[in-house]
């Protein structure tokens, strides 16, 4: 087997036939190929759930982590190798339930990572319990009783957390999703794509036909998400949060908000550690032929503020 540039692996994809995840997978593979990225320059990091299996089906580095923890694992990868393209795939339960704290933290940092939520409103892999995006009062197929808890709005949460690229897409519109993924990857900063992902097995309410009837594209209405100057931020952000409330007969998809004017975490680190961009943690030499770069002399120099010279006197 040689290196494949179509981003496909030869594994059998074990999602239920008709699952919206297939659309996300295809869109990702196409986006990566069209972006012209080499598979070794890309790291796909996922959580646990049906969605968590995504990296195994993509021919690029894949890190399938713990339930809810894809963002912090990805953060470590990105901090150590800021030149790599890092994408997170997680379920709605994964990213907005058990991992919600990390989801918020990433926005605060504006680290250049793209997060894709496989938003199916259920916990797929544990057989259909309510997820944090399922509205209260509804009863999807596997629930014994209607859902007691209200839904969180992923877009509004991302916007108020500081994500500088916030979008929604529909898993069954692969071409549109692919373009959004490309835009998110190209964006410098934390990017969120909330993907409406039909779960054919457990979600009998929010189905492909249900969405098809309602989804419309923001760009068709001339929506301008881009912040061109920091002074525009408050207004554009408020408008995006308002737009994110729209749900029901009409459901907008597309890029809600994009602010390329904010500095990234990498920028901030580089302003303190000048060598950070050219020699990030993973690329620094730490030894020469097994001898530490920091030897006795260097140790004293680095920690000179703790070194006391003894005065010989009397």
């Amino acid at each position: 087997m040689g290196l494949r540039l179509d981003y496909k692996t030869d594994l059998w994809v074990d999602w239920c036939p008709g699952c919206g995840n297939f659309g996300i997978l295809t869109a990702m593979q196409k986006a990566l190929a069209e972006l012209g990225l080499k598979p070794w320059e890309v790291v796909i990091v996922s959580g646990i759930g049906c969605s968590g299996k995504t990296p195994h089906f993509i021919y690029a580095n894949g890190v399938h982590t713990l339930h809810g923890r894809a963002i912090p694992f990805a953060t470590g990868v990105k901090l150590a190798r800021p030149d790599l393209t890092v994408i997170v795939d997680g379920g709605d339960g994964d990213l907005l339930g058990i991992g919600a704290g990390h989801f918020v933290a990433l926005g605060r940092r504006n680290l250049d990572i793209t997060v894709i939520i496989h938003d199916n409103q259920v916990y797929g892999l544990t057989k259909g319990q309510a997820s944090p995006t399922l509205p209260a009062g509804v009863k999807t197929k596997a629930l014994p009783k209607p859902n007691l808890q209200d839904a969180v709005n992923p877009l509004a949460l991302a916007l108020s957390s500081g994500y500088t690229f916030v979008a929604r897409a529909f898993a069954m519109d692969v071409e549109h999703l692919k373009e959004i993924i490309k835009a998110a990857v190209k964006h410098r900063g934390s990017a969120l794509i909330d993907v409406l992902q039909p779960c054919v097995t457990y979600n009998d309410l929010y189905t492909t036909p249900w969405y098809r009837k309602r989804v419309y594209k923001l760009e068709d209405e001339g929506w301008d998400p881009v912040v061109r100057d920091p002074s525009e931020r408050p207004v554009k952000l408020a408008r995006a949060i308002e737009k994110a409330q729209e749900w029901g007969d009409r459901i907008p998809v597309g890029i809600f908000y994009q602010d390329p004017t904010r500095d990234t975490l990498e920028d901030r680190i580089a302003s303190r550690i000048p060598s950070y961009r050219s020699l990030p943690p993973a690329l620094q030499r730490i030894d020469s032929n097994g001898t530490p770069i920091v030897g006795e002399r260097e140790l004293k120099a680095i920690f000179r503020d703790r070194l006391i010279r003894v005065k010989k006197h009397h």
Partner: peptide
């Protein structure tokens, strides 16, 4: 300069070890 150490304060200890592993 012999390089730099990135010291990163995370949102909790789960993130701390997860990020360390990722790195």
């Amino acid at each position: 300069s012999l390089g730099g150490v990135v010291v990163f304060q995370t949102e909790d200890e789960i993130a701390a070890i997860s990020a360390a592993i990722g790195a």
